[in-house]
């Protein structure tokens, strides 16, 4: 390579690499270092305390409970979202009059897609405000109002959806699923349409029914896409900061109520960092989040591994 070429390469890389180093990579590395100190954030002095933060973490009931909530989210958010999205994508593509089970959409499938996808362009902050209004604890909430009309909820004593320890996580799951299904539906739908028609025709000749062609053809050929969706939903489930911090009762700051029943790792971490000022401790939580993310991605990739089908 010529000298000029080197200069060109270096010139193009300088700005992106330095920005990325300063604001992303260096803080990542620093977090690991700070997690071994008793740093409070206000002063620049801190002591090295080894793994004490981590030991404290595993005795911190709030944080352990938060990990458990993240795990519940990690199971239910992807499963429900993917099943619903697959179901609707199949309905959109195969419910139509097409005989070969999976190519032509139902009438108006484009309109459905436009509507379903819309929540995805809204910010989670908007979703939080919307669902707070829907879940209002008096008759003015859409959910309570509707159930009162049906006679399922007593008008004198409506449900406090976000204050029920056993319900609050599910209420958050509903909001996430509402937000996400459309996106995965469009994703799956595009993948379904790219499956060549002759495969369905061949199956039809062999006497396969609609269900058989879905489970034996569509699903295996969609597997890569489902796997991608799983990873993306896993990231959503590990985060959950916006909804928990702005929809649930404050445990000091950043939601998590009632009585920490909806706390997740991100809200506990932010509370320790900004409200209690325990920076070193919060860094240890960040590291635990990273480790869990890595473990989970390995597990997910292993568990969902299939032979790739080329077509």
């Amino acid at each position: 390579m010529h000298k000029g070429q080197y200069r060109f390469v270096a010139g193009f890389l300088l700005a992106p690499v330095s920005l990325y180093l300063i604001f992303v990579i260096w803080p990542y590395i620093q977090t690991i270092g700070y997690s071994l100190t008793d740093w409070k954030g206000q002063s620049q002095t801190f002591k090295f305390i080894g793994l004490d933060n981590y030991k404290a973490l595993f005795q911190d009931d709030v944080f352990m409970q938060a990990i458990w909530h993240n795990i519940l989210f990690l199971i239910f958010i992807p499963v429900i979202t993917i099943l619903l999205a697959l179901f609707f994508a199949f309905m959109l593509n195969a419910g139509g009059r097409s005989r070969a089970g999976g190519v032509r959409g139902v009438a108006g499938s484009q309109v459905y897609k436009i509507v379903y996808f819309f929540p995805q362009v809204l910010s989670l902050a908007i979703v939080a405000v919307l669902f707070n209004a829907v879940y209002r604890s008096d008759g003015g909430g859409l959910l309570n109002g509707f159930l009162i009309k049906l006679g399922l909820v007593d008008a004198e004593n409506p449900m406090e959806w976000l204050n029920e320890p056993n319900l609050v996580l599910w209420m958050l799951v509903i909001a996430v699923v509402w937000h996400g299904v459309g996106f995965y539906l469009v994703l799956f739908s595009a993948a379904m349409q790219s499956i060549p028609r002759d495969i369905y025709e061949a199956a039809l000749i062999d006497g396969a029914g609609r269900n058989q062609s879905f489970f034996r053809i569509t699903l295996p050929l969609l597997w890569d896409t489902v796997q991608t969706a799983w990873v993306y939903l896993g990231i959503v489930a590990m985060d959950m900061f916006v909804l928990v911090s702005s929809m649930t009762q404050n445990m000091g700051a950043y939601g998590g109520g009632p009585d920490h029943h909806s706390d997740v790792m991100s809200t506990v971490m932010m509370r320790n960092f900004q409200y209690f000022g325990k920076s070193g401790y919060a860094c240890a939580m960040g590291v635990v989040m990273l480790l869990l993310t890595l473990v989970l991605s390995v597990v997910m990739l292993r568990a969902t591994r299939r032979d790739r089908v080329e077509f």
Binding site: P27, Y28, T31, M265, M269, A282, M285, M289, T293
Partner: peptide, 13 residues
């Protein structure tokens, strides 16, 4: 990597 991993040092940076 989750963005939460970087938050504390990022703030001080």
């Amino acid at each position: 990597f989750p963005v939460f991993l970087a938050l504390v040092p990022l703030f001080f940076m």
